[in-house]
Design a protein around this nucleic acid. Structure first.
Lengths: 100, 100
DNA sequence: TTGGCATATCGGGAAAAGTCGATATACATT
DNA sequence: AATGTATATCGACTTTTCCCGATATGCCAA
């Protein structure tokens, strides 16, 4: 993954917020019932609702974050759940500490 | 400084390179004579030369990086020297570790 | 004070990103 | 099979970013 693409993914207020929300899902998405936050995460619809942007926009934002390895997804039935990707974020931390 | 602006500043290959070059100026700018890398840094012309982009572009890129607190500048005569801003980079590291 | 550098700023054209509504796909229920 | 729901993709339009050349500014030397 290109470093520039990671930073581009983070260059947007909503995408940064999403990442923040996914850091504490139980706090930010209390309405999601039967949630297995640890293993699957939060579904697109909940994130879209919270963001106030359109469904298509959020779907695209999530795939941008995923391409940057900052989140990962799991499909369960008709839902796609997204969660924080710890490894990707650690790698980002490392980039900043070693390359910049 | 807005977090988004910091990441925007980093969302460009050349700007990332500049930051990398300024991390080890003595290595990346050996041609700069009488250089006080520690205190003042590297002048715009050297950075421009190395980047291959136009003078105006590099001047603007440097001010973008400076606005994001990632570098700082010192004017000496007709030259402006830029250097890495350790504090800003540490703050960025902290943002990633606490907010995302 | 005039001319010459180094850097900054301005104006613009091309490319990319932001964002939407409409449509497609995929799955679940009846 | 038909309908309903969740998400993804497409096409379009607007805004922002990239990057340039031209010009302005600031400083120094003759």
């Amino acid at each position: 993954m290109d470093q520039v693409e990671i930073f581009k993914a983070l260059s947007n207020k909503t995408r940064l917020q999403i990442l923040g929300w996914l850091k504490e899902p139980e706090l930010n998405f209390p309405e999601q019932q039967n949630a297995d936050f640890e293993n699957v995460g939060v579904c697109v619809g909940q994130i879209q609702l919270k963001s106030g942007l359109s469904q298509s926009t959020i779907s695209e934002y999530l795939s941008i974050l995923q391409r940057a390895d900052l989140i990962s997804s799991t499909r369960v039935g008709q839902w796609t759940y997204y969660k924080r990707n710890k490894e990707g974020l650690e790698k980002l931390s490392e980039i900043i500490n070693t390359a910049l």
